[in-house]
Computed example of a mutant assay.
Amino acid sequence: MKRFAILLFSTLLFACASDKKDTETVRDMAVQEVKKQMNLPEGTTFNNENIEVTEEESNTEGVETVYVVKISIKSQDQDGNEMIKTNTLRYEKADDDTYKLASFD
């Protein structure tokens, strides 16, 4: 019984660690893509409040999971009014643990 409990706990721990790693990988890829697409200056940083990563099940064959990343960028217009622009990126994770940008809005 102890072995079963240890095995179950280990599997659960590994699954959580793997999901966290996937989320961080997709988050980093999205930040780089937004910097490139929006021509943001070198050294631009984002904090956790600006980025939201969610995971969805996929109905597409060969695609395991879809990650939706929303990145909010705060800026000011010429009058000094604060503007917030939110970009939505969708990444698809294939069976072979590769990620592909599916859309950028």
Rank of each mutant, 00 (worst) to 15 (best):
M1K: 13
K2V: 12
K2I: 12
K2R: 11
K2Y: 12
F4L: 15
F4M: 14
A5T: 08
A5K: 09
A5M: 12
A5H: 08
I6M: 08
I6F: 08
L7K: 09
L7E: 11
L7G: 07
F9W: 12
F9P: 09
S10T: 12
S10M: 10
S10K: 06
T11R: 11
T11S: 13
L12T: 15
L12N: 14
L13F: 14
L13N: 13
F14M: 15
F14D: 12
F14Q: 14
F14T: 15
A15D: 13
A15Q: 14
A17R: 03
A17S: 13
D19P: 07
D19N: 12
K20L: 15
K21I: 10
T23H: 10
T23Q: 15
T25L: 08
T25N: 02
T25M: 04
D28I: 07
D28S: 14
A30N: 02
V31Y: 03
Q32S: 11
Q32E: 09
E33F: 05
E33S: 01
E33P: 04
V34G: 01
V34Y: 02
V34S: 01
K35E: 06
K35D: 05
K36A: 11
Q37M: 10
M38T: 05
N39M: 05
L40K: 05
L40E: 02
T44E: 11
T44M: 12
T45C: 11
F46L: 06
F46C: 04
F46R: 03
N47W: 10
E49N: 15
E49L: 14
E49R: 11
E49K: 13
N50H: 11
N50A: 14
N50W: 06
N50I: 00
I51K: 03
I51E: 01
I51Y: 02
E52L: 10
E52S: 13
E52Q: 12
V53H: 06
V53C: 05
V53F: 03
E55H: 06
E55D: 07
E55Q: 07
E55L: 10
E56R: 09
E57M: 11
S58N: 00
S58T: 00
S58E: 00
T60S: 06
T60C: 00
E61V: 14
E61I: 13
G62P: 03
E64Y: 06
E64A: 08
E64D: 12
T65Y: 02
T65G: 04
T65V: 00
V66Q: 00
Y67W: 00
Y67F: 05
V68S: 04
V69D: 05
V69F: 02
I71V: 02
I73C: 05
I73K: 03
I73H: 03
I73Y: 01
K74V: 05
S75E: 01
Q76Y: 13
Q76E: 10
Q76R: 07
D77H: 01
Q78K: 07
D79H: 08
D79W: 13
D79N: 13
G80H: 04
N81M: 07
N81R: 12
N81I: 08
N81C: 03
E82H: 09
E82K: 08
E82Q: 09
I84W: 07
K85I: 08
K85D: 07
T88C: 04
T88D: 02
T88E: 07
L89G: 00
Y91T: 02
K93S: 00
K93V: 00
A94Y: 11
D95Y: 15
D95T: 11
D95P: 07
Y99R: 02
K100R: 13
K100V: 10
L101Y: 05
L101D: 03
A102H: 09
A102P: 01
F104E: 03
D105G: 10
